[in-house]
Design a protein around this nucleic acid. Structure first.
Lengths: 105, 105
DNA sequence: AATCATCGCTTGCAAAATGAAAGCAAAATA
DNA sequence: TATTTTGCTTTCATTTTGCAAGCGATGATT
């Protein structure tokens, strides 16, 4: 648990993972999410996700020079964590709404 | 998710919840956990857990003047979160060991 | 081809959170 | 009563956060 929380234990990391799980892959998409992550934090979190093997960089389109981000298997394995956090919020925190639906990506 | 992470999204909160789930209730017990939480942080986290309705204070023994902490229903509802985080760590982070076993408390 | 807007960051800086250590009064223990 | 333990609080240096501005490279437009 402690090791997991060294990686996941902050306000932003799991939100980025959620966006990745929803299929978003580009910097601007993460920035556009309703929570409004600061760009320097996003840079740092993406870098950490990559170094921790949770996400990886991929070329965006054929021959494009930009890159996007995508979850690895290790990253996709976080789905139960995201779902349990979401479900707990829905059940116990009033005014919580769903951004990630059960069947996504 | 964002609302949940406002409460749970840091390195220590879920570790304290885990200790509570294991039945620990006293300040010194949380301090004695192997992760070594600083006492000022522990104070702050216990206070937040109480104000967020995840834990509550209870008299320790009959007529004692000390108080301990205990999970509320809302706090106990975090079990799936703890378990999914633990399971992910076990599966994907090498060198992770189990402190909280499936059948506890 | 030239211009312009967008993208994916980085930098600077103030404010907040963290962590180590020491201190301390009330409670428990001897 | 004397001593130790407990449950914190305080202090302060360091790190992290968050906002804003800036900036070169890419992509789109004309």
């Amino acid at each position: 648990m402690s090791c997991s929380l060294d990686i996941l234990g902050d306000r932003w990391t799991l939100l980025v993972v959620r966006d990745l799980m929803l299929g978003r892959s580009r910097f601007k998409d993460f920035v556009a999410s309703p929570e409004g992550i600061p760009t320097n934090i996003l840079s740092d979190r993406l870098e950490r996700l990559v170094t921790n093997g949770i996400a990886e960089q991929v070329p965006l389109a054929d021959g494009a020079k930009r890159f996007g981000y995508r979850l690895t298997d290790k990253g996709r394995a976080l789905r139960p964590v995201l779902e349990s956090v979401r479900d707990w919020g829905l059940a116990w925190e009033p005014g919580t709404r769903v951004l990630m639906k059960p069947g996504d990506a």
